[in-house]
Simulated scan of single mutants.
Amino acid sequence: MPTPEPVQFSTALRTASSEEHEAAEQSPFMSRLLHGRLGVEAYADLTGQLWYVYRALESRTGQLAEHPLVGPLVDRALLRTAAIERDLAHLRGPDWRDGLAPLPATAAYAARVEQLAAEWPAGYIAHHYTRYLGDLSGGQIIRGVAERTWGFARKGDGVRFYVFEEVANPAAFKREYRARLDAAGAAMDEVERRRVVEECKRAFVLNGAVFRDLDSRYPLSA
Score class of each variant (00 low, 15 high):
P121L: 08
F173T: 06
D135T: 03
A122Y: 07
A172G: 02
I125A: 11
A183E: 14
V167F: 07
Q140H: 10
A126I: 07
T149F: 06
L133Q: 01
S137V: 09
I141T: 13
E166F: 07
A179D: 13
A187S: 14
A172L: 15
A186V: 09
L181D: 04
R148Q: 15
R143F: 03
A122D: 12
I141W: 08
G185M: 09
G138N: 05
F164A: 13
G139S: 06
A168L: 11
E165S: 13
T130I: 10
G134V: 04
Y177V: 02
G123P: 07
S137K: 03
A171W: 03
Y124G: 03
R143K: 15
F173Q: 04
A171H: 12
A187I: 05
G139P: 00
R131F: 01
A122T: 00
A172Y: 01
L136A: 07
G134C: 06
A172K: 12
A146L: 04
I141H: 05
G156Q: 05
Y129N: 03
E147N: 02
V159D: 06
L136D: 04
Y124A: 03
I125V: 15
E147P: 00
G134Q: 05
K174E: 05
E166L: 14
G158R: 04
N169Y: 12
G138S: 07
S137D: 13
E165H: 11
Y129H: 14
E165M: 03
K155R: 15
E165N: 06
D182H: 12
R148T: 08
D135N: 04
D157L: 09
K155T: 08
L133T: 12
E176L: 12
A146N: 02
V145A: 10
Q140E: 11
F152E: 06
G158Q: 04
K174H: 09
G151V: 01
H128G: 00
T130H: 01
A126L: 06
A168T: 12
Y124S: 01
D135A: 09
I142G: 01
M188F: 11
G134P: 00
V159G: 02
A122Q: 09
K155V: 01
R154F: 10
D157E: 15
E166M: 10
E166Y: 10
H127F: 14
E176P: 05
G185T: 11
G139Y: 11
A183S: 13
A171Q: 14
A122G: 08
G185I: 11
P170E: 01
M188D: 08
G138H: 06
E165Q: 13
R131Y: 02
A153T: 09
T149Y: 04
V159W: 12
G158M: 08
G134N: 05
V167A: 07
Y162N: 03
A183F: 10
D157Y: 00
R160C: 13
K155C: 14
F164G: 06
G158V: 08
